[in-house]
Design a protein around this nucleic acid. Structure first.
Length: 638
RNA sequence: GCUGCUGUAGCUCAGUCGGUAGAGCGCGUCCUUGGUAAGGACGAGGUCAUGGGUUCAAAUCCCAUCAGCAGCUCCA
C-alpha cells in the first residue's frame, strides 16, 4: 500500500501500482472523467503513470489553466500528425502552446495555405474520433539521439533538453514526436479546435537560420468556449482602431511620413480631453511641467549612453556642420533642466513632468496603427529624491496611476516588478535598498504583483502596469523605473543637510506610456463608443424639416454656449437617414427637433445604441449631461 | 529588418483570356418638407502606388522601389 496525499490534506491509502487515473477514480467518478493529467509532488505527469511510492497528488482537470494547456499541447501533436499525413515531406521542429492556443513550426518547402486548413482540420477530426491513446516512451539521451538520427531539428531539440532521460509520445499509427509531456489520455480529449493561421518564423528566432512555416491553432475545452473565442476575435476585428479611426475621421497615416500619425480635428478633441485631465491630476499630485527641445546635439546622446546603445533606432540631422539627434527619450533634456541650477534636499521630492514628443526609428515591419509608431508623445515625468523618499514616491505614483486608469474604466490592473539583471550598474546595496522600496510600496498598498527576477533595466529595477480592456486583452501602459545611471553620467547633484554634494535618485515614470498608443487602445476598448467626456461630438441636433431650422440653430448655439460639443444636421434628408448617420458617427446624444419641440423649448433625445427616444425640457437635458461629463461616466442614460 | 500577401474614385471593393475603367456608399445640384435605422432625379470625381521592362497593345505579365497587412525578430 502507498499513501497518497491530496491537495486538501486528505491521505488516501492505495494499493501500489495503480495509475493516477485510477486513483482519481477512487476520489470521485466525476473527477476521473474530467481528469486530463496529474501532478505528482508538483510535477505534471500522464494519467497512466503508476504510483509506486508515497506521494502528494493533484489531479489536473480540463477546467484548470494547466489542464487547458495540456489539451492544447496534445492538440498540437494531433495537428502535427495531420500535417505529416497530408505532406509526408514535412519535418516537425517545435510545437509549444501559446496564449489562446498553440503552434507548430514545420520545415516544408511547399507552402501551406489558408485553403488547406479545412483539410488539416478534417484529418485532425478523424484522428480524434479514433480515440487513440497517447503513449509515452522513455529513452536515454544516447538512445534518443540514435532514434532521431538524420533529423537535425529533433537532434537539436534533444541537445537543448535537460536531463538524461528523454520522452517520446505517440498516439498510434506510427506518428511519434519528441516531447516532455504530459498529454491527455487519448486523442478524443483534445477539445474543440481550429487551425487559425500560417506565418513564417525563423528556426530559433534567428534571422540567419532557415525560415520555417508556423501553423497556428487554437483549442478549447468544448465547442462553446471555442465559439466564444472566435466571436471575441470577430469583435476585436470590428474594434480595430485603424478601421474605426478612419471611419470616425480621427487620424490618418501618409506615405510622406511612415509611422507618424496625423491627428484630425476629431482625434484632437480626444487628445486634448486626455491632456486636460492628465494635467489636472498631475497638478493635484504636485508635479511641475517642462518642455524640452526635440533636436539636441549628438554629444548629449553620447553622454546619456543612448547613442552607444540605440543609435540604429535614432534619427539624425546635420545643421551648420553640427551633428544633432532627434530625441528618442526625454530624460537627457530633463537632466539639463535640473543641472541648470543648484538644488537642495529641501526641494525634494521634485516631480517634473513632460509631455515629450519622441522619435524612434522602428523597423519597418513592426509598425501597427497608433499602437506602434515612430513618433509619439510620452507622458513622462522624472522625480528627483533621496533614497529614503523612494518608497513614498512610488506609493504616490501608484495612487496617480490608479486614479488615471480608473477614469477610463480600466480597473483590472496587473503589476510586475523586475529586479536586478546580470548586466547592471550601481552597487548591490543601492539595488537592494531600492528594490525593497519598490516592494514595500506595493505591499503597503496591498497590491498583488508578479516578480520578474533579473528582468530589470541595467540601470535600475522597475514596476510595470498592465491593464485589461473590455475584451480581456492586456496592454502594458505605465512604468516606474529607478535610474542609477543617468544622474551620475550627467553629474547631477544636490546639497544635503550636512552641506555636502550628493547624487539624487532619479525615478522615470510614464502612466499612459504613449498618447498615440493609448488613444489606439481606448478606441478598441470603447469600440469607438467614447464616453461623453471624450466623445469628439457629444450631441447633434437633427431637424425634421426646414420649418424648425431657426429653433434648431438657436438650440445648437445654446448648447455650444453651455460648453457642449454640439453639431447640427439641417441637411435635406428625412430624420431616419439622419439617425443612421448619427449612429454611424457614434454620437452619444441625438436631439430630434420639430414643431412640437420648438413650441415647448424642449428636445427629443435619442441615446446611442438604443432605438427609443424621450422628450425632455432643454434645461433638464443640459443639467443631466453636465453631470455626466463631470463624473466621466460611460453610462448615457438620462 | 526578414518571409508571405496586398496596393483601382474620399471610403469599401469588382474588373474574365493583355484590347484605354465599374458598383455601392459618400460628395454636389435640383425635386421633395418628410416625427426616429436609408425619399427621388441628375451630376462631378481615376497618371489603376511609383519607376522601368515585355508587347502592335499593360490596371492585367516581368523587375525594382515605396507604402500597407499577417507573422517572425525587435521595442531604451
Amino acid at each position: 500500500m502507498v499513501k497518497v496525499t491530496l491537495p486538501d490534506g486528505k491521505v488516501l491509502e492505495l494499493q501500489d501500482g495503480l495509475t493516477i487515473g485510477q486513483a482519481a477514480g477512487k476520489i470521485g467518478a466525476r473527477l476521473a472523467r474530467d481528469a486530463v493529467a496529474g501532478k505528482i509532488n508538483g510535477q505534471a505527469v500522464d494519467l497512466n503513470t503508476p504510483i509506486k511510492t508515497d506521494i502528494s497528488l493533484a489531479i489536473i482537470t480540463a477546467n484548470s489553466p494547466d489542464g487547458l494547456e495540456i489539451i492544447r499541447h496534445s492538440c498540437a501533436h494531433v495537428m502535427a500528425e495531420a500535417i505529416c499525413t497530408i505532406w509526408p515531406k514535412a519535418q516537425l521542429v517545435y510545437g509549444p502552446t501559446v496564449e489562446d492556443g498553440f503552434y507548430y513550426d514545420i520545415d516544408l518547402d511547399e507552402p501551406i495555405r489558408p485553403e488547406d486548413f479545412g483539410k488539416i482540420e478534417k484529418k485532425m477530426t478523424e484522428i480524434a474520433e479514433k480515440k487513440l491513446p497517447f503513449v509515452r516512451r522513455e529513452l536515454s539521451r544516447e538512445e534518443a539521439i540514435k532514434h532521431v538520427a538524420g533529423n537535425k531539428y529533433k537532434i537539436d531539440n534533444i541537445n537543448r533538453a535537460q536531463g538524461d532521460t528523454l520522452s517520446f509520445y505517440s498516439h498510434g499509427q506510427g506518428f511519434e514526436d519528441l516531447c516532455r509531456g504530459p498529454h491527455v489520455p487519448s486523442t478524443d480529449r483534445i477539445g474543440s479546435f481550429k487551425v487559425m493561421s500560417v506565418a513564417g518564423a525563423y528556426w530559433h528566432g534567428d534571422p540567419t537560420q532557415k525560415m520555417l512555416q508556423r501553423i497556428y491553432g487554437t483549442a478549447w475545452r468544448d465547442k462553446k468556449e471555442l465559439e466564444e473565442y472566435l466571436q471575441m476575435l470577430e469583435e476585436a476585428k470590428k474594434r480595430d482602431h485603424r478601421v474605426i479611426g478612419k471611419q470616425l475621421d480621427l487620424f490618418s497615416f501618409h506615405d510622406e511620413g511612415p509611422g507618424f500619425a496625423f491627428f484630425h480635428p476629431k482625434g484632437m478633441v480626444i487628445w486634448n480631453q486626455i491632456t486636460d485631465f492628465w494635467r489636472s491630476v498631475h497638478k493635484k499630485y504636485d508635479y511641475q511641467e517642462i518642455k524640452t527641445p526635440i533636436i539636441l546635439n549628438q554629444e548629449l546622446w553620447k553622454l546619456s549612453g543612448h547613442w552607444e546603445n540605440y543609435k540604429e533606432n535614432m534619427y539624425f540631422t546635420t545643421v551648420d556642420e553640427v551633428e544633432y539627434a532627434i530625441k528618442p527619450m526625454n530624460c537627457p533634456g530633463g537632466c539639463l533642466v535640473y543641472r541648470n541650477k543648484q538644488h537642495s534636499y529641501r526641494e525634494f521630492p521634485m516631480r517634473v513632468a513632460e509631455l515629450g514628443l519622441v522619435h524612434r526609428h522602428e523597423a519597418s515591419g513592426v509598425m501597427h496603427g497608433l499602437v506602434r509608431v515612430r513618433q509619439f508623445t510620452q507622458d513622462d515625468a522624472h522625480i528627483f529624491c533621496v533614497p529614503e523618499q523612494i518608497e513614498s514616491e512610488i506609493v504616490n505614483v501608484i495612487n496617480l496611476v490608479f486614479e488615471i486608469y480608473s477614469a477610463f474604466g480600466f480597473n483590472d490592473i496587473h503589476i510586475e516588478l523586475s529586479t536586478k539583471p546580470e548586466k547592471h550598474i550601481g552597487s548591490d546595496e543601492i539595488w537592494e535598498v531600492s528594490t525593497t522600496a519598490l516592494k514595500n510600496a506595493l505591499e503597503s498598498k496591498k497590491i498583488e504583483f508578479q516578480i520578474n527576477e533579473g528582468d530589470g533595466a541595467f540601470y535600475g529595477p522597475k514596476i510595470d502596469f498592465h491593464i485589461s480592456d473590455c475584451l480581456k486583452r492586456t496592454w502594458q501602459l505605465g512604468t516606474i523605473q529607478l535610474d542609477f545611471s543617468m544622474p551620475q553620467r550627467f553629474g547631477l547633484v544636490y546639497t544635503d543637510k550636512d552641506n555636502t554634494e550628493k547624487t539624487p535618485v532619479m525615478i522615470h515614470r510614464a502612466i499612459l506610456g504613449s498618447f498615440e498608443r493609448f488613444i489606439g487602445i481606448l478606441i478598441e476598448h470603447y469600440g469607438g463608443n467614447f464616453p461623453l467626456w471624450l466623445a469628439p461630438e457629444q450631441m447633434r441636433v437633427l431637424t425634421i424639416s426646414e420649418k424648425t431650422n431657426d429653433y434648431a440653430q438657436k438650440l445648437r448655439q445654446m448648447l455650444k454656449a453651455e460648453g457642449f460639443r454640439c453639431e447640427l444636421d439641417m441637411s435635406n434628408e428625412k430624420v431616419g437617414a439622419k439617425i443612421i448617420k448619427a449612429h454611424n458617427d457614434r454620437l452619444p446624444y441625438m436631439l430630434v427637433v420639430g414643431p412640437k419641440e420648438a413650441e415647448t423649448q424642449s428636445v427629443n433625445v435619442r441615446i446611442r445604441g438604443t432605438n427609443e427616444s424621450t422628450g425632455l425640457e432643454t434645461g433638464r437635458f443640459i443639467a443631466a449631461v453636465k453631470e455626466k461629463i463631470v463624473s466621466k461616466t460611460q453610462d448615457l442614460v438620462i
